[in-house]
Computed example of a mutant assay.
Amino acid sequence: MQNNIASLSKAASESKQKAVLSASILAPQLPIRLGSTPKTSFRGHADIFGRLVEDHDKHRALIAMIGETSGASEERKKLFKELVRDIKAHAAAEEQALWSTVMRNPKTTDQARHAVSEHKELDDMLADLAARDMASSGWLRRFNQMKEEYLHHIKEEEQEQFLAAQKNLTDPEISEILRLFRVRKQTEKAAAEVEKKIRIKK
């Protein structure tokens, strides 16, 4: 039992390190003050849910690194572009592979709809940030608002929505969802562009 727990803990730690490393390569000179991450039973797992958490950890690292930049620096531009493209590809692939399947089950339809609606909200916030001057005083304030929304969204997925989905999916479905996610994420990332659109609040 203890060996199994130690093995799971090691896998979770290695998964998080791998995700942080993939972000740090873009600007190795910047510190990554990630702090603690929300507990999730999926980190380090070889299934679709572990794969999604690995992306989340990369995004957490990119967000932390952007917080270490200033003005319209090249580091901020490069990190923000990668964050936007990876979140867009991740969300699109997640919707196509996971949430489209989960939505078909009445027990989890609402969870899936909620996750997809938050993707749209975050996409709008990222497009708004991309359209604004990074050197302006309001850019970091808006970025921090987006950060709060995104970190809440992925915490909710990891601690609630993934658990509900897992309970209502078969092992073959989970395997197929992972296969499809890997294919779609690669395709979506290759095509992802940074949209610029000022958000008009109603």
Rank of each mutant, 00 (worst) to 15 (best):
M1W: 08
Q2R: 15
N3F: 08
I5S: 14
I5A: 07
L8S: 15
E14W: 02
S15C: 00
K16A: 04
A19W: 15
A19E: 00
V20I: 10
S22C: 03
S22N: 02
A23Q: 10
A23R: 07
A27P: 02
A27M: 11
Q29N: 13
P31F: 01
P31N: 01
P31C: 03
P31W: 12
R33S: 07
S36V: 11
P38D: 05
P38A: 09
T40R: 09
S41P: 14
S41W: 09
F42Y: 14
R43C: 15
R43G: 06
I48M: 10
F49K: 15
F49T: 06
G50C: 12
R51L: 14
D55F: 12
H56I: 11
D57K: 09
A61Q: 07
A61H: 09
A61K: 00
A61C: 07
L62F: 08
I63P: 04
A64P: 02
G67K: 04
T69L: 04
T69D: 00
T69W: 02
G71V: 04
G71W: 02
A72Y: 08
S73V: 11
S73C: 09
E75W: 01
E75I: 01
E75F: 14
R76H: 04
K78C: 01
K81Q: 10
L83N: 05
V84T: 11
R85I: 13
K88D: 14
A91V: 03
A93P: 03
A93R: 15
E94N: 08
E95W: 10
E95T: 06
Q96C: 09
Q96L: 12
W99F: 06
S100F: 10
S100R: 03
S100N: 09
V102R: 03
V102T: 05
V102P: 05
V102Y: 01
V102F: 12
M103S: 07
M103L: 15
R104G: 11
R104V: 13
N105K: 08
N105L: 07
D110Y: 13
A112G: 12
A112R: 11
V116F: 04
H119E: 00
K120D: 11
E121C: 08
D124W: 01
M125G: 01
M125E: 05
D133Q: 06
M134N: 09
S136L: 11
S136C: 07
S137T: 13
G138C: 12
W139A: 06
W139E: 11
R141Y: 13
R141L: 06
R141N: 03
F143Q: 07
F143G: 08
F143C: 10
Q145E: 10
M146T: 07
M146E: 02
E148K: 14
E149K: 15
Y150C: 06
I154C: 00
K155P: 01
E156F: 12
E156C: 02
E158M: 05
Q159P: 03
Q161K: 12
L163I: 13
A164S: 06
A165S: 07
L169R: 02
E173Y: 05
E176M: 09
I177F: 01
F181N: 04
F181T: 03
V183R: 02
V183L: 13
K185V: 10
K185N: 12
Q186I: 10
A191W: 09
A191D: 00
A192R: 00
E195G: 04
I198N: 01
I198E: 08
R199D: 04
I200W: 05
